[in-house]
């Protein structure tokens, strides 16, 4: 009773015949071979498995691969442009927004969604914005700084782009 799916992952079509119960996170890790998306709880409570599905953050441990059929998924591996890190990745690096790094891909993808929709969030909006993602190492303070840092960078670049037009 397998089902054929085609999921665009970071711009590349991934085709597979999958069991209907296969979770998207397992599809990404086992079929697409992208292990940057982590499994921290299997119940959508920790956020380590957060990816973008058609641009919005979802917890891929509670999405079935068949639900993502024909849709676009972006994982943490798809953020950098070649050697050029995404501003959110730069922010996490510069502000020491990670320690063990396990929650980080999910935290980065969640921040991506936040900044897409609220380009200049206040600190408390950042804290609310990432409250579906758990981090046990950092106490969140440097993560907030990282998102703030990324927000500044992205606004500056957006302004520069607008100026260039």
């Amino acid at each position: 009773m397998k089902k054929n799916v085609t999921i665009s992952v970071n711009g590349i079509d991934q085709r597979a015949s999958v069991e209907p119960r296969l979770l998207l996170v397992h599809f990404l890790r086992e079929v697409a071979g992208l292990t940057g998306t982590h499994i921290g709880c299997e119940t959508s409570l920790c956020g380590a498995c957060t990816v973008l599905l058609d641009g919005r953050a979802v917890k891929s441990c509670t999405v079935l691969a068949v639900q993502a059929d024909g849709r676009k998924v972006t994982t943490v591996e798809g953020l950098a442009d070649g050697d050029k890190l995404h501003p959110i990745q730069e922010g996490f690096w510069e502000e020491h927004g990670l320690q063990c790094g396990f929650c980080t891909p999910g935290m980065i993808m969640c921040s991506h969604d936040l900044l897409e929709h609220h380009p200049s969030p206040s600190d408390s909006e950042i804290r609310e914005g990432i409250n579906g993602n758990l981090c046990r190492c950092t106490g969140y303070q440097h993560i907030v700084a990282a998102v703030r840092n990324a927000s500044r960078k992205m606004s500056k670049r957006a302004t520069a782009r607008a100026g260039a037009r």
Binding site: A80, Q89, G101, T104, I108
Partner: peptide
Amino acid sequence: EDPRLIQGI
């Protein structure tokens, strides 16, 4: 440590 961690690699 961070470049490999923030890129999920």
